[in-house]
Design a binder for these strands. Structure first.
Lengths: 208, 208, 208, 208
DNA sequence: CATGAATGAGGCTTCATTCAT
DNA sequence: GATGAATGAAGCCTCATTCAT
């Protein structure tokens, strides 16, 4: 898995970055409050007032930095995107074998989901808040994924297949399984289940 | 894949079934209108008024049959659940080989998604509207799936593995891939992509 | 205290009396239901639907007998009026001394209030539902009261004073005290308190 | 009669006090409008919209200061409570004789009722809007009253009796009589009637 | 006599956003 | 940069009453 060097961030589209240190602190508090509350109650049940209250600022302040409610949500998605990628990258950076890296990447993803129970849910919720950011997220993510798979195909570590379709298969497994164990039980799949997932993927990818 | 013979329907929780023919017609019109509009604009952007308007009844009539917006949404999910299962069941009922049936079931699911572009999205949206119905849906669905897989394992058609984990892997692939091609391009994965999915799954399931 | 021989009841003003035995039963059930529910929750928090439901009839049936919500309320007031008077009359009918009869009448009234905790409250509520019926009730009641007092004045049993003002003083004491012990503690004033009330009234009324 | 020096006001239960001068002005206008309209049409026939309209603010503004209609009503009751007590206190502050003070207190109360025809009715209506505030009102009022009577009993100005029962007798007379002449005729009882009330009370209270 | 579906005005409440300070 | 009062449209829901059967 690969991390975008730079997530394109347009400073003037819905979000106005602060210019002073004090402003930066306010901005950060707003974002943190949004993460907490939207993460907890979802986008639609979160009012901007509750965000500013939690952040300890006045209502008007919100609009100094964000054009509206959707914009802070989008900002949140960018942050999660960045976080997840970094988290996974760190987990797999020393694994030379590609197939093994895939498996470990998925496990890392599970861990992320469990550590931030409602954060990753926001990615899924994005489909119903701002479809464009949702598509951006998965397009972006899958591209990185697909490149990796192509690499591995060239090196004959995995079978030659359509990289995008394959990427979505693997993402589907991770995301859906991750959701299942996060929402239902808030724990990892047990050993036997992990082994099943691992085996299914490894055999599915195996060359020949 | 297996279809519940009967979806348990609790008549007295949030939904009041009509007692006369006239009432039944009204009820049906409301449900159809909800399907159209919620399907089109999503749960949160749909007002109850717009549903009644489309159904050609007065606002108050809505509340004769549903306690609130969530209740008609839940009713909709029950219907979709039933529809999807029936659709898939019909598609695979004559396929004797289990692995082949899985593949065809997934293809049928893709077709369903494409034919009802925004209906299946409601299932995903349910996570953010009524988490219980969302969990009910996938718990229910996965049970049927897992039973089938167990069958196939006993018959050595597929490898012995954890059936639930495997069911969620396969569902993850279908649902995520289904979403991808529905949302991005409104068409099926192309031949090469379908072949990739097929091969990945078949190899992943293969015994030995 | 005296009871109107006949409470004027206009059969065609808001209330349509039933003509058949079956109708009479329905009418009675409606009235009983209204007494229960309005007594319990007050006029404004009672819906006609809840009355018909409790009475076991359909909504439309209500309008066969009552023009609207106010009309059944008014009917209730008539009934309570009649009840209260009868109750008191029975309690004092064998007491020859007028002053003693007043005291016993008040005690009987307290008992009525305690036995029908929320029925007498409806009389007070009438001020805010239908001021005319409210005024009717107390005008009527006070007239009977005043006549009695005049009688007693002629017989020199009590001092010569303005009968109406006196009637309202005595009613004020009964009603306000009755309300106090009903609402706060749901029991009678204790011995010492009763004795205070008794003494205060007797001395106040005493001739000379 | 005695006036609370300070009416306990809980700032954080249903009422949010404004923080700026501008806010205070708005708050006051809302309260004044509520007094006018609820006083005029009663609690149940007053819509929040009509209050805001009269106050010249938008609907939403109401909810900046009051959680709901009940809360502004309660606020009103506090104000009336305060007003009435002050009004009576002023009227009797220079009267040394206790029995005479009682009589004058009641007359002052009559005047208050006539000057604010529908304000005191709100106190009675409170029984059907918010029973707790209603009980608070009379509990509070009667306590002051009873203390006064105890004083007078110690000084042998009036007979030794149960102070609470006596207080409710006197309050019953004032309130019921006050209501009678306010509602029926909007004038004071005439000379003869006043004299009757006066005599009845004075004799009733007389020591010995 | 009785039913119960349908009406629709009316009221309540929330909340994203603006704006004067 | 920050405040917080004010807005008002938008949506929810109730319920007295009517009417076709």
């Amino acid at each position: 898995m690969k991390i975008d060097k730079d997530i394109k961030r347009n400073n003037y589209e819905g979000v106005s970055l602060p210019k002073t240190r004090r402003g930066q602190a306010t901005f950060d508090r707003l974002l943190k409050a949004a993460e907490d509350i939207i993460g907890d109650k979802g986008y639609h049940d979160t009012s901007i007032y509750s965000i500013t209250e939690q952040a300890g600022v006045a209502m008007g302040t919100f609009y100094l930095y964000f054009r509206g409610k959707k914009d802070i949500f989008r900002e949140l998605i960018y942050h999660i995107h960045h976080d997840v990628r970094k988290y996974i990258q760190i987990a797999i950076k020393d694994i030379p074998d590609r197939k093994e890296a895939e498996i470990e990447g998925i496990k890392a993803f599970f861990h992320y989901c469990l550590e931030h129970p409602n954060l990753y849910a926001l990615i899924r919720e994005a489909e119903f808040v701002d479809i464009e950011i949702f598509k951006w997220y998965y397009t972006n993510f899958s591209k990185g994924y697909a490149e990796h798979l192509e690499d591995a195909m060239e090196k004959k570590q995995i079978k030659q297949m359509d990289p995008e379709a394959l990427a979505f298969c693997l993402m589907g497994i991770s995301i859906f399984t991750g959701m299942r164990w996060t929402l239902w039980e808030q724990k990892l799949p047990d050993e036997k289940q992990l082994e099943t997932i691992r085996e299914f993927i490894l055999k599915g990818l195996a060359p020949g």
